[in-house]
Amino acid sequence: MKRFSVSAGPIDPDGFRRALVDPSCGAYVQFEGWVRDHNEGQQVLRLEYEVYEPLAVKEGLLIVDEAMERFEISRAAASHRSGLLELTDVAVVVGVSAAHRGPAFDACRYIIDQAKLRLPIWKKEHYANGAAEWVNCRHCAEAGHAHHP
């Protein structure tokens, strides 16, 4: 299994567990991000992810490698969806196997947190009222924040 991939089609979460099994490991932690039906008081119908794949893959691999270096873990992999997703679809999966549960939890948390901060991925939510907005940019626009720097 690739340590990091962008997937245009459905992700099979069970495939991560199978691929990351290791006889030296006593712990396996997996995180799944799902598409939920609400955000900030709005009813969400579906969403789409725009991914700049060349850099998302490069940065995703870097994040998984960082986790391998920082924590006492044996294996790790992650995948993020692109394209149109419906409610309850799996948007992102992170799997980590390790000898002990502590580093497995910590590394899994590190990978998903860094992925949210660093991957060039953007989410557009489609709402029940017919509107569609890029998440986060809505706040910038409403707050009238100046652009960087």
Binding site: K116, L119, W122, H148
Partner: peptide, 30 residues
Amino acid sequence: LVAINDEMAGWESELSDGDEVLFFPPVAGG
């Protein structure tokens, strides 16, 4: 975030002729 020629870069990085500069709005993966 900003990237130059498919490498993450800083806002005060030096630009060169022919560079491809990518401007990223706030990211929202996960």
